[in-house]
Amino acid sequence: MTDVREALMVGRTSDGRTVRRPLSPHLQVYKPQITSTLSIFHRFTGIALSVGTLLLVWWLVAAATSDAAYASVSGFIRSPVGYLLLFGWTAALWYHFCSGIRHLFWDVGYGFELPTVHATGKAVLVATVVLTLLTWVVGLATL
């Protein structure tokens, strides 16, 4: 122990061993890295998609209501703002989708080595761009 404040870092595991408690990084003084940045992206896209479900609910309710209601949701989606929101929603969806699969692999214990973490992180970004563009190319082609 080099400093009296170290005493605050003494913790105990559930089987009784004393350990030095891990300390969460302080975001203000922490250099952004692909690991932390993608983690924040996952939360951010999750929040954005939650708000985006308003559009999903509007679409479903309008389809179940009347031609006029469906025309208004179609009109909104095909406005410049609607296209922009839907494009952002698509990108957020594919990011959260790919990043979520990466999280599920971590949950079952795979992919924790740092080079793997960096490689899968980059793969998630590439897959997001590819899937977003693919969705829009196919979507606009079928219009």
Binding site: S50, T53, L54, L56, V57, L60, V61, A63, A64, T65
Partner: peptide
């Protein structure tokens, strides 16, 4: 809000399923 939005979506889906 999540419960009400989810229920609204669910009702819409069921209405489409039963009356569509």
């Amino acid at each position: 809000a999540a419960a009400l939005l989810g229920l609204a979506a669910l009702i819409a889906v069921l209405k489409l399923a039963f009356t569509g």
